Simulated assay, not measured.
Amino acid sequence: MKPLLDLRHLQLIQAINQTGRITDAAKMLGVTPSALSHRLREAERRLDVPLFTRMHKKLRKTPAADYMAVVAERILTDLSRAEDDVRRMNANVQHVVRLSVEAYSNYRWLPYFIKFLKSRTDGIDIQIMAGARSDPLNGVLNRHIDIAVMSGSVAQAGLYSLPLFEDPLLYIMPPTHRLADREFVEGTDIVGEQFITYTKVPEPDREFALLFRPTDSYPKWAATVELPEAIVELVASDLGTSVLSKWALQTPLTEGRIVGARVTEDGISVPWCAVLRTEDMDDGDPILQVANLLSEWCSLPEGGFHVT
Rank of each mutant, 00 (worst) to 15 (best):
L4M: 13
L141S: 02
I75M: 06
S153L: 14
T32R: 09
G139Q: 04
L47M: 14
L79G: 10
L276D: 01
V191Y: 10
L300F: 03
K2W: 07
Q11H: 13
R54V: 10
P286W: 03
R262S: 15
I114C: 13
L47A: 07
R133Q: 01
D238M: 02
G267Y: 07
N142G: 00
L7R: 12
R41E: 14
P63G: 06
T32K: 11
F113T: 04
L4A: 15
V243L: 01
I172M: 01
V93Y: 05
N17I: 00
P252L: 06
R88V: 01
P204V: 09
Q18M: 12
T215R: 14
W221P: 02
V259A: 07
I172Y: 00
K57H: 15
E186G: 05
A261V: 09
G158M: 08
A155F: 13
V101C: 04
A222P: 04
T188S: 14
E186C: 07
S151V: 02
L294K: 06
S299G: 12
T224M: 00
S269F: 06
A82L: 12
M89W: 10
K27M: 13
N106R: 08
L117R: 09
R262P: 04
T62C: 13
A65D: 00
Q289S: 05
D122W: 04
V97L: 05
T264Q: 09
A180D: 11
L5S: 08
H306A: 14
F195L: 02
I172R: 07
L117C: 09
F212Y: 15
I22Y: 02
I13F: 01
R21M: 11
A91V: 10
A209K: 12
A82E: 14
G303A: 12
T278R: 05
D24Q: 12
L244R: 04
F52W: 06
R39E: 13
T264A: 02
L137A: 08
K115N: 14
E203Q: 11
G256H: 09
V31H: 07
G256E: 10
M55N: 15
Y104Q: 00
V270K: 03
Q94M: 13
T121L: 10
P252S: 11
P168H: 08
D146H: 01
D181I: 07
L276H: 01
V71Y: 08
Q289P: 10
L239H: 05
R277G: 07
V235I: 01
L47G: 03
V86A: 07
D78S: 11
L59C: 10
L76P: 02
